[in-house]
Design a protein around this nucleic acid. Structure first.
Lengths: 225, 225
DNA sequence: ACTTAATGATAACTTAATATTAACGCCTGA
DNA sequence: TCAGGCGTTAATATTAAGTTATCATTAAGT
């Protein structure tokens, strides 16, 4: 099930790198547009409306940072993914990368393989960003912040508790067999007793203070409101 | 143990919309306060001191425009972000909204996704306008000078310490996996042990003297106040 | 209502993860 | 070159998460 082809704009002043990236991104199934300096990047961004923009920090005309700022100030590009490429030798690469409002920044050198997988992760995150944080009644679950709020109040769950709740809440009403829960949360190899699940369920119920996990006796549990 | 989450006050007279917004903003990690009319909004703004106020234009008691004017006339709210929600049918509402000193206005209906990203953009812009120095409570981080001050006192951090703190502090509340931290601060190729992160975290905590980095066991670390 | 199987609750226990401390090299600036 | 800060690691302590044992309670079938 292939979705539409993603367009990636690559802005770097070094021809070698442009070529390298173009080759690898094309091979990974992206449509690639190239730009060789900051102004060129801005220009081609407007024309082609790419899904993601890879910006080298050090470029003629306008630096990647400047380009990023300009793009971000426009509503048109407020949703577009922007990734900065920074040389690690630069002092404070973290600082530079974060200041711009980019969605991610990657230190050079980077193997094409790593780069592609980082981009894929970003696209994945973006498409999930709606379901990444899910809402059911007074309960909101934010996976990014590892945070659950009930009626506005934030509640801290332990890792397993969170994973369990997240599993159930993702498909409200659906009953999860104990076996399913075990393989999903604990994995195939781990063997734990049945009571372990109960205890975690209990802790979740306790912490949330809301009766949202229903027991289906002899079968499993389900999330309902 | 209260974490520093951005508070958003939502003022709208339609229960359905209040509910919709509450759910989606909660899911995005905001703490949400609800108000159902103009007076209620003013009241709750004073009590809760939200970071951002979402005002429907058409409300009983006092209109969003009136509320906005009143808020803006008080020093307490001079810095607070105010966003007007206007029905597109209202002619000239855009003009009115902006005239009153709102930071942004959004036409209804709006998809929750778009709304959230608009708010995020506003917060981003706000924190940037304070130059590239980042302020969170008693902690101020100046990336330009590699300088951190706590309650006015300047503290000297080593480079790695600084980068690590800066990374976390830039997205308050967001959990950073140990892997993320490694690639962001140390780069793609470098391999260092897990304990290294711990030690740096410890040094930061020690030097700052404030408990602002919370560990999420089995997951990573996050910056909160 | 009785019996039984399944789950709830609690506390004791085990394990995994992180905190802490100190030590070791490395580089840098006096 | 030598002192001292920095980054890393190793070793150990501490803490929180996760698990299990036990007993109480509940629900379904008879």
């Amino acid at each position: 099930m292939e979705s539409k082809i993603r367009k990636v704009l690559v802005a770097d002043d070094e021809p070698d790198i442009r070529e390298l990236l173009q080759y690898n991104l094309s091979a990974a199934g992206y449509e690639v547009i190239l730009a060789q300096d900051g102004d060129d990047a801005l220009d081609k961004a407007k024309k082609n409306k790419p899904d993601l923009i890879l910006l080298d920090v050090m470029m003629p005309k306008k630096s990647g940072v400047e380009v990023c700022k300009i793009l971000r100030s426009q509503t048109q590009f407020s949703e577009t993914l922007i990734v900065m490429l920074t040389a690690l030798s630069d002092d404070g690469s973290v600082v530079k990368g974060l200041e711009t409002g980019a969605d991610d920044y990657i230190g050079k050198p980077v193997s094409p393989k790593v780069l592609v997988s980082r981009l894929q992760a970003l696209f994945r995150r973006q498409s999930k960003s709606e379901s990444n944080s899910l809402v059911a009644g007074p309960i909101a679950i934010n996976a990014e912040q590892f945070l659950v709020t009930v009626e506005g109040k934030s509640i801290s769950l332990a890792k397993k508790e969170f994973e369990l709740l997240y599993l159930l809440a993702n498909k409200p009403g659906r009953v999860f067999l104990r076996n399913e829960i075990l393989t999903q949360v604990w994995g195939n190899e781990v063997i734990v007793g049945d009571r372990t699940i109960d205890v975690h369920i209990r802790k979740i119920r306790q912490k949330l203070g809301i009766d949202c996990i229903k027991t289906v006796k002899g079968v499993g549990y389900k999330f309902v409101l």
